[in-house]
């Protein structure tokens, strides 16, 4: 919890220090940074370079060459194969995220502002659900979704994501609301406000940053998930991760297609991260630092 605050203020670092003579230590530091950046960016270079090659231009021995002619058709080809799945993922991620954010907000509010005896134990029991390997519930989950008649429909997948998203969204909101001074609540109680009025008038209006964090986090998680996607859906409702794994695992060796597909599948979450990175990091930290 406490770990969140410093990351929110990266600009606070005293970068505007007066110019100093360049020390050898700084040179080593920048050299290390560049080296590390290479490690992280080289795969991206290969990804883009390969995606832009035409199938005949792809040759293992010229992996590193930038394509001589840019083949943008890779993207339209990839889209024609997994475009429908991207839309599935979008519908899935947006719907599941909204539901679990709402649940998480209410839970977090109830758990942090209306503590009852055993609330912490209950919360710990809930949190455990965040860490379980989903393989341990997969077979009953599959049977359950099937018995609800939701198997193969995107709603079965949404249900699974909403339920298994409850722990993390509750955690983030509970931590977020823990920072809201109790005095505010007390004041509202004295004014005669009840559970829902306080939520509506005091809590919800200041929850926007919490919602942003939760929505980004949950969206990324749901978008990227694979195991449920592989077991609960059928051809028409498969999300993009599963479609991509098939594109890449296919017999064809034209690697530009899976690479272009990987870019399409990565773009939404990548954009979210680049545009709203601060909140993304907060979700990241909330996932590990308890309340």
């Amino acid at each position: 919890m406490t770990a969140n605050a410093p990351v929110n203020a990266p600009a606070a670092a005293p970068t505007a220090a007066p110019r100093r003579p360049i020390k050898p230590g700084r040179v080593v530091m920048y050299a290390l940074l560049v080296l590390a950046a290479l490690f992280f960016l080289v795969p991206v270079y290969l990804l883009v370079a390969t995606a832009l090659k035409s199938p005949d231009a792809i040759n293992l021995s010229t992996t590193w060459h930038w394509p001589s002619a840019l083949n943008w058709a890779s993207f339209s080809d990839a889209w024609s194969k997994i475009g429908g799945n991207v839309l599935n993922s979008l519908f899935l991620a947006v719907t599941a995220t909204l539901f679990s954010a709402l649940l998480g907000s209410l839970n977090g509010y109830a758990l942090s502002k209306w503590k009852f005896r055993g609330a912490n134990t209950l919360f710990a029991l809930m949190l455990f659900g965040m860490f379980i390997p989903y393989q341990a519930v997969l077979i009953p989950l599959f049977q359950f979704i099937k018995s609800l008649g939701l198997y193969g429909s995107i709603w079965g997948l949404i249900l699974a994501h909403v339920v298994y998203g409850i722990p993390i969204t509750t955690l983030i909101f509970r931590n977020f609301y823990a920072d809201v001074p109790d005095a505010l609540i007390e004041a509202a109680t004295i004014d005669g406000a009840g559970f829902w009025q306080i939520y509506g008038r005091v809590i919800f209006p200041i929850s926007i940053p919490g919602f942003v964090v939760v929505i980004i986090w949950q969206f990324t998680q749901v978008w990227n998930e694979f195991l449920f996607a592989a077991t609960l859906t059928n051809t028409t409702s498969q999300p993009v991760t599963y479609a991509l794994s098939q594109l890449a695992g296919g017999q064809a060796v034209s690697w530009n297609l899976p690479m272009a597909g990987a870019i399409l599948a990565a773009l939404p979450t990548l954009l979210v991260y680049i545009l709203l990175g601060r909140y993304f990091v907060r979700g990241l930290l909330a996932g590990s630092v308890k309340g």
């Binding site: 099937k146 059928n234 296919g250």
Partner: peptide, 24 residues
């Protein structure tokens, strides 16, 4: 025309299984 590519049919077989078990 529902095709599931990859793995000499192993991916398709997995999907088929979940569909048959799922009653569709």
């Amino acid at each position: 025309n529902a095709t599931v590519s990859g793995g000499a049919g192993t991916n398709a077989k997995a999907v088929l299984k979940t569909r048959m078990l799922g009653g569709t």
